[in-house]
Nucleic acid binder design. Structure first.
Lengths: 233, 233
DNA sequence: GGGGTTTGGTGTAAAAAAAACAATAAGACT
DNA sequence: AGTCTTATTGTTTTTTTTACACCAAACCCC
């Protein structure tokens, strides 16, 4: 095999770190591999990129095949390309993370997985390939991103309470519940940005005083940015 | 050709956005391509990744072949993989940026370039491939990075004056000279971090009061971080 | 060697932002 | 009615950021 040909004995894949939040811990969606290598092991959902497919498209496809969701938040994070990272050949992988609303999630039987389950971030065991490292880096990226861009809302239902929003931040940033962030200061800050609108409705079905529901308003956010302010928690 | 084989009719390259600073504008090192496609056009230095080569290693190699430098600051930024980005086939590229001290730079005749020259960031014309987009993204990354990590020093000689440091920030962040940052506040801030040490020497050969020279001290920086502070300009 | 020119170096006060902190209100349940 | 649980709201203090102007040191030129 000539050297030039050998350049083409390689492939690239995408792997997707799918985050979710259910009110408790931050979660990541993992699959149990149905094929070698690492058959039976937990891994990030991913696939080889088709020859005629853009990278972002491939990441969207992987996400949709697994969850049935389209149009959710997706961001490229980094490419992992250690020579020996894949036991069967030279395969580099472009890592993405996505943020989905757990309530929207409908498990679709995906060809590449025996099963898929949410795992608490703090309770992820040893994963296939270099997926622990990928998960780490993506989590760090999310932690930075959530603090200076309004992406946290992607993890919550459309209507949410301020307490839920605060708990989301505490989970993502791994802060102690109701200790990490001061409730009054948090509310003051987020409301002062004017990017939330109060819904008519209240929280229902709780055994205590119900909270007001809010929605994120992208138009207001765009205006906030246009005025030269920057989102910062 | 089977579908599986077609996955391997693809390659990946690295492209390197090499930044430099000479006291005036921020500069980027571009090559004039010596081979098709885009022969004669200005482009980012880059090369295919060897089959047995890690991505970071490939980026270091490209940098060394062009500049003779090793061990300089290098950071992966993003992977660009639009299907049609390379006219000769499916080639995705992993973009890096590196920061070098222009004074260390010794041009080495590199096989892949007819010539290499520094271009002012504000004066880069149309580049080969999608390199304008890559340059844009890398510049944005540098602008963010320089504000919250001590990477600016990588662009300056080992010993520098505070004015030079300020001018560096103003160039990278594209602020008006001596207007964007307040001299007194800038000095106060950077000195309060305690990451610079004053040299014995003074600036020489200038037709005005000579300035004190400073050096960045990584140990002090590590301690600064260990104490829970974060670098922030 | 004196005056002009150029950049280097320094502190304080006002404003804004962040942090600390606790009591009342609303509804569910018994 | 009383208890329980979470929701909601403002003020004070501290810290950080901004705004702002004058003298000092070296060189140059006459």
């Amino acid at each position: 095999m000539s050297e030039v040909e050998s350049f083409f004995k390689s492939a690239f894949s995408v792997d997707n770190v799918i985050f979710g939040f259910d009110g408790g811990d931050l979660k990541v969606l993992l699959i149990q591999r149905g094929a070698a290598p690492f058959r039976g092991k937990w891994a990030l959902p991913g696939d080889l990129v088709y020859p005629n497919e853009d990278l972002d498209t491939a990441a969207e496809r992987v996400l949709e095949q697994l969850t049935g969701l389209r149009g959710v938040y997706l961001e490229q994070v980094r490419t992992f390309g250690a020579v020996d990272r894949h036991p069967l050949g030279r395969v580099i992988t472009i890592a993405y993370f996505s943020l989905i609303k757990v309530s929207d999630f409908a498990l679709t039987p995906a060809s590449f997985a025996q099963s898929a389950h949410w795992h608490s971030i703090s309770d992820v065991g040893e994963l296939a390939f270099d997926h622990n490292e990928i998960l780490d880096i993506c989590l760090q990226r999310l932690q930075r991103k959530v603090r200076n861009a309004p992406v946290g809302f992607e993890l919550l239902p459309q209507k949410f309470t301020l307490t839920e929003l605060q708990q989301l931040y505490e989970s993502v940033l791994n802060l102690p519940k109701n200790k990490g962030l001061d409730k009054r200061n948090f509310r003051k800050k987020i409301l002062s940005m004017n990017v939330l609108v109060e819904c008519e409705e209240m929280q229902e079905g709780v055994a205590h005083r119900p909270a007001k529901l809010y929605q994120f308003d992208r138009e207001r956010y765009d205006q906030f940015v246009a005025e030269g302010f920057s989102f910062d928690i």
